[in-house]
Amino acid sequence: MMQKEAIFPSGRHALYEKHRYSAALRSGDLLFVSGQVGSRNDGSPEPDLTRQISLAFENLKAVLAAAGCTFDDIIDLTTFHTDPETQIGAVMDVKNDIFKAAPYPNWTAVGVNWLAGFDFEIKVIARIPASQ
């Protein structure tokens, strides 16, 4: 059986402990990252949509870094949106600033009706570099 290892970024441990999930799980050379949201330091949603999206990517970056990964190691990207039609422009602005050159990760965008007060969430699967 393949072993799995929980990965946590520095800080935010109370959030993961309270809701009983790992920020990410390493299994072999793959990293499965739980959904990341654009929360402020106190855990509340950032009200500005573009800033909320940016914070979600910043939180994702911290989880990836804890496993020795970067955005370049992402294979599969799934985003969740409470109002995709009106939010897609802001999402694309932030996403295009992060993923500037091909090959881009796979991407699935899903419209949802509830994200616990947030408007955007992102989860990924990444390949951990061989040197890790």
Rank of each mutant, 00 (worst) to 15 (best):
V94G: 01
R12V: 05
G117M: 06
I75S: 07
G111N: 12
D83W: 03
E121Q: 09
S34F: 08
E85Y: 09
L55A: 00
H19E: 04
E85W: 10
T86C: 05
P129L: 12
P47R: 09
L60G: 06
Y104P: 00
N113A: 13
G111A: 15
L15K: 14
I7R: 05
N59M: 04
R127F: 01
L60P: 03
S22Q: 12
H19S: 04
R26Q: 15
G11S: 11
L31E: 03
N59Q: 14
F99K: 05
P105V: 14
D76R: 07
P47W: 09
C69S: 07
D29R: 12
L15R: 11
D93H: 04
N59Y: 10
S10V: 05
D42F: 09
I75G: 00
S131A: 14
Y21S: 02
D83C: 09
L115M: 10
A109H: 11
P84M: 14
T82N: 06
F120V: 08
D42T: 05
A130W: 07
T50Q: 13
A126E: 07
K61I: 03
K18H: 12
E5C: 02
S34Y: 03
K18Y: 11
A102E: 15
S131F: 14
R20I: 13
S22G: 01
L55H: 08
G111D: 15
T108H: 13
A90P: 00
L15Y: 15
F118V: 05
P129A: 08
A126N: 08
A24Q: 06
N113I: 10
I75Q: 11
L64F: 06
Q132T: 13
T82M: 06
R51V: 15
V63K: 03
G68T: 14
P47K: 13
S44E: 12
G11R: 04
P45V: 13
Q52M: 10
I74Y: 07
S10A: 04
F118H: 14
N96Q: 14
P103W: 10
K95Q: 09
I128Q: 07
S54N: 00
A90W: 06
L55Y: 14
S22C: 13
I7P: 00
K4V: 14
F71T: 05
A66Q: 02
K100H: 04
H13Q: 05
A62I: 01
D42E: 11
G28C: 13
V63A: 01
A14M: 07
Y16G: 01
V63H: 02
K100F: 08
L30A: 06
V91E: 10
D42M: 08
G111H: 13
S54E: 10
M2S: 10
I98L: 15
G38P: 06
N113M: 13
A66R: 04
I125T: 15
M1R: 08
I98V: 10
L15E: 13
A90I: 02
P84A: 09
A65R: 05
V112M: 12
I74H: 03
H19T: 02
A6E: 04
G11H: 06
K100A: 05
A6H: 05
K95F: 15
